[in-house]
Computed example of a mutant assay.
Amino acid sequence: MFFNRDGCISWLNPALERMLGLTADQLVGQSREQFPFTSHRGLFKESGLMHLFGSGVEQERWLQCTVVTPPATDPDMYQVKFFQDITELVQLQEENQRLNQQVQELAITDELTGLANRQALTRALNSQVARSRRYQNPLTLAVIQLADRDGAGAIPDEVILAVSRYLRDRLRWVDMIARWEESQFIIILPETSLQQGHDLMDKMLASFSELALPAPHTTGSLALQFGLAEWRKGQDARLLMKQAFANLAENGAGDGPA
C-alpha cells in the first residue's frame, strides 16, 4: 500500500484488497482524519501488529505491518507499507495459551470434584505454615473422612461429588479444601485456632444429614469423621498434617497421610 505526502492512500494491490475485504475504490484517496472504516483505522498506524475486526469472528484479521520510506522522487509513493496476514499464527498462539491454561488448571485440580488436588494442597499448606511461622498467626488443618457405615465398599463418585460440594459451600472464602484420597478431604483453615476449627467442624457435621444425595444413597448410611491439628512453633507442613491424621485416627478413622 502506498501513501502520498498528505497521508492519503494512493495505491494498493489486489492481494491487500482481498485481505482487507475492501476495494481500491473505497480506500484510495482516504486519509486518517476522514477514514470511514472504523475497524481498519490501523492501516494508518506505523509498523507493528494491526488488528482488524468485523461483525463476526471470521472477519477478524491480524496483520504485521512493515513501513518503508522510498527515495523522495514520487509524491504519490511517499511511504510504502507491506502487510502480512498472520491471523492463523495469532489464533494458534491464542489456542496454545488456552490449552496451557487448561493444563495448569488440571495440574492443580481434582478431576472429579474440581477441588484442589494433592499438589495444590501441599503448595498452599507450605505457604500458610511459612506465614504462621513468620507472623505467629493461628493455623488449623482439618482432615475429613467420608465413611460408609454399611461397609458396602467404595463410595460412588456421584456421592463423593455431592459431599465435596457440601463441604466447599460451608467454608469461608479464606479456607482451602482439597481432595486427598478417594473419600478423604483436607481443609486449610488460616487465622483459625483449634477451638474455632472444632466449632466449624461440629457445625458442618450437624447439618450433614440435610444433604440430598442422588438415589438410592442417603446420608443415613454415611458418616463424616474429622481430625484437627493446630500449627505449633517448630512444626513444618508435614508434621502438621501428620498430627491431623493422628487425631483422625484417634476419632476412629484414617491411617495417616500416604
Score class of each variant (00 low, 15 high):
Q195H: 13
A107P: 02
R118L: 14
L239C: 07
L167R: 01
L12K: 04
T73E: 06
A223L: 12
V67T: 13
G48A: 06
L189F: 08
E158K: 12
E46P: 04
N126Y: 09
I108G: 02
W11E: 09
Q26K: 10
A154H: 08
Q34L: 07
Q102Y: 08
G42F: 01
D25H: 15
R41H: 13
F226N: 06
S183H: 07
S207H: 15
L248H: 04
E191G: 08
E191D: 15
Y135H: 15
R232H: 14
T219M: 04
V68F: 11
E210H: 10
A120L: 09
T192A: 08
G7N: 12
G151I: 00
E182H: 12
T192Q: 01
L224T: 07
Q102H: 09
V80R: 05
S132V: 04
G252P: 07
A142K: 02
S164D: 03
S183D: 10
R170I: 10
A15P: 04
R179A: 05
E94L: 11
E111T: 14
R165Q: 14
D199R: 15
I186D: 00
E58P: 02
E181H: 12
E191H: 13
G151M: 00
G151H: 03
S193H: 13
E60V: 07
E88K: 02
F3N: 02
G54F: 04
A258I: 11
G48Q: 06
M1S: 07
F2V: 10
P70N: 03
A215R: 06
L200P: 00
I9P: 01
Y78R: 13
V57T: 08
S10Y: 03
G153D: 05
Q104R: 03
E105Y: 06
P71Y: 05
R232T: 12
T113Q: 02
P70T: 10
G7Y: 06
A253V: 02
V90E: 14
G254Q: 02
L12E: 00
D76P: 04
G42W: 00
A237H: 03
N13T: 07
Q64G: 14
E158V: 05
A237R: 00
Q97Y: 10
P75E: 09
L146W: 04
